[in-house]
Amino acid sequence: MPPIDPPVDPPVDPPADPPADLAPSASVPEESPEGRRLPAPGPARPADGAPGIRFEKVVKRFGRNVVLRELDFTVAPGERVTLIGPSGSGKTTILRLLMTLERVDGGVIWVGDRPLSHMPRGGRLVPAGERHLHEMRKQIGMVFQQFNLFPNMNVLRNLTEAPVRVLGLSRDEAVERARRLLDMVGLADKIDAHPSQLSGGQQQRVAIARALAMEPKVLLLDEVTSALDPELVVGVQDLLRDIARDSDLTMLCVTHEMNFARDISDRVLMFDRGRIVEEGPPERIFEAPAEQRTRDFLHAVLAS
C-alpha cells in the first residue's frame, strides 16, 4: 500500500475562501512540491445546500487489479452527474468509495470542504477512523441495485429505524417523515407490508424513500433499475426524475439507461478502465461523442 498521508502544510484550518476548484469546470489543483496541500475549503455550497465532491488522484485496487488509477474529477454542489461505461470500468467503485463501503488505496476524496476518506490530524491527512466516517456519512445516501431492504423489518421500520437510532428523531417525527416519503413514492398503502410482499419496483421505491428519510445532501444511485423487470423500470425512473427536479441534491448516478441519464443529468462522464475518457453535457455525449470508445460503447448499449 502506498503512503496515503503525505505531509501537509499549511495546517488544517485553512482560510474560508470559496474555492474555485469545486466548480464543475474547474481543473484539479496543482501539487505543491512538498506534497499535497489541503485545498482551500469553504462554502463551496450555499448555506445548507448540497456539497460538491472532488476526487484527487484516487487509486483503488482489488488485489492486483487496479480499478481506479489516479482519478481526478469534481462534481459541483447540486450537480447531477451520470457515470457511464463498460462494466468493470470503475463506475460503481466510485459510488462505493463515496459511501465508504470501500477504502481508497491512494489519493483523497473530498466532500464539501472536508476529506471523506481521510481526516486531518496534526496537520497531516490520515486514513479516516470510524467516527470521522460516521460524521461524513451523514451527508450521503445510497440506493442499491438490489434494493437491500432489511427483511427483519416491515416497510415502516425500514424507513424509521435509522432516523430514530442514528439521527435521534422521536418515534412520531420519524413515522411522520416516513408517511410523507411513502406518499411521495406512491406506496402509502404499503406502510405495514413486509419487503418480501412487494414487487421489485415497489421495493426499490421504498429503498429510495429510506435513503431520503436520512435527508442526505448527496444521493448515490447504483444501477437502481438494473434488477427490475422491464415493466417496472419506468415507475422508478419517473420517481427519480421527480426527485431530481424538486430537490437540490448532488446526485451521482450509474446507469445503463441512456434516456434516463439524458433526462436527469447535467453532465455525463464516460469511464473506461478506471479513467475518464470523455465528459460533457448529455446532449453532446449522446449525440456527438468525440471519442471512438464512447461511440463504441453507446453503439453497443443502444443496440441491446
Binding site: M99, T100, L101, H134, R137, K138, I140, G141, M142, F144, Q146, N148, L149, F150, E161, A162, R165, V166, R210, A211, M214
Partner: peptide, 11 residues
Amino acid sequence: AQYEAAVALNF
C-alpha cells in the same frame, strides 16, 4: 449487502 445498506444509513 445488508451490512452495506446499514453502513449507507449510517448505523
